[in-house]
């Protein structure tokens, strides 16, 4: 079973980390846990009572934390045994900085079941998992509120009298065009500016200041996003693809091929954003009609081609993909 979730909390990454590493608190806020005992560095004994459908079962087993990066992420390994079967799970947890005093807790992983438990059916099991997650998130939010952490303040620069609300910097991590990329950004930096000015990927363009033209379109976690409408910090932990990542060692991506073969570009300025939007479309719809292509591209301006050959370029790519 796939496990996946994300929730935002009003706290810094450091503050949430403090709670997650505090064994008694964690035992208290995790639903069903009746005992949690530290048995070594990053290893715990745990007893949990969970109701699965009509059956109430008591699980006994071990939790271990691996791949720990302080204030950022760890992997949780669970092996629990009970009369009705065993659970083995491996879940990655990530704290994502979403801004001043705002952090997301994201997790993603897999659980395997054996014994009669396995026969309970995926729907019931995932229902249980999602309800436990919900409870956990709610308890964590309560705990954060109860602790009444001091609010993180923006850094104040001392060299002039103006309070600079913008200088707080963050290190973010993206999986950019197939490679892990760390970069330090200011809170207010737009993703497009970081890509262009800091990372020098200048294929992503800026054509407007109202998120209307689409020249800055890139793929984030596989979906077309206007990178002028997103803060760089919001890209932390995401997979980012820009035009520079389209071609492979084998050659052009079919959409690049299509644009070349059908003369889908003239000045080339809108082209990267146009192609990324088209890739998003072709992932959702492998054989779009002309009408569907035109609708999908309506967030991207082209002033040179009248769109005529862009439509043909996308059709060309669709036929190849």
């Amino acid at each position: 079973m796939e496990l996946k979730g994300r929730e935002s909390f009003k706290a810094t990454r450091e503050q949430i980390w403090e709670i997650l590493m505090d064994t008694p608190t964690l035992a208290r806020i995790t639903p069903g846990i009746s005992r949690l005992e530290k048995i070594g560095d990053n290893a715990y004994d745990a007893i949990a009572d969970v109701k699965i459908g009509p059956v109430k079962a008591s699980f006994k087993g071990k939790l271990t934390l691996t791949d720990i990066t302080e204030n950022d992420s760890f992997v949780l390994n669970v092996t629990q045994n009970s009369k009705i079967g065993n659970v083995a799970a491996k879940v990655g947890l990530n704290l994502v900085n979403e801004g001043l005093n705002q952090t997301a807790l994201a997790f993603e992983g897999k659980a395997n079941f054996s014994g009669t438990l396995a026969g309970k059916g995926a729907r019931i099991l995932s229902g249980v998992a999602s309800s436990l997650t919900k409870q956990f998130f709610a308890s964590l939010a309560e705990e954060i509120e109860a602790r009444d952490f001091p609010e993180a303040k923006p850094e104040i620069t001392q060299n002039n009298s103006n309070v600079n609300l913008h200088s707080m910097s963050h290190e973010i991590k993206m999986f950019l065009n197939g490679k892990e990329q760390h970069v330090t950004v200011e809170s207010r930096d737009l993703l497009v500016d970081v890509l262009r000015d800091k990372l020098r990927l200048t294929g992503t363009h800026v054509g407007c200041d109202t998120s209307s033209c689409g020249a800055c379109t890139i793929l984030i976690n596989g979906k077309a996003v206007k990178s002028c409408t997103m803060l760089a910090v919001q890209a932390d932990g995401t997979t980012v693809q820009t035009v520079e990542g389209l071609a492979t060692a084998e050659g052009f991506h079919p959409i690049q091929e299509g644009f070349k073969e059908e003369h889908g570009l003239q000045c080339g300025f809108c082209t990267p954003g146009m192609m990324m939007t088209a890739v998003d479309l072709l992932q959702r719809n492998t054989n779009p009609s002309e009408h569907e292509i035109r609708e999908a591209l309506e967030g991207n301006f082209c002033r040179c081609t009248g769109y005529h050959n862009i439509v043909r370029a996308v059709q060309h790519a669709a036929a190849k993909m």
Partner: peptide
């Protein structure tokens, strides 16, 4: 075209 299609 090549330079425009590859973001260069």
């Amino acid at each position: 075209d090549k330079r425009f299609l590859t973001g260069k």
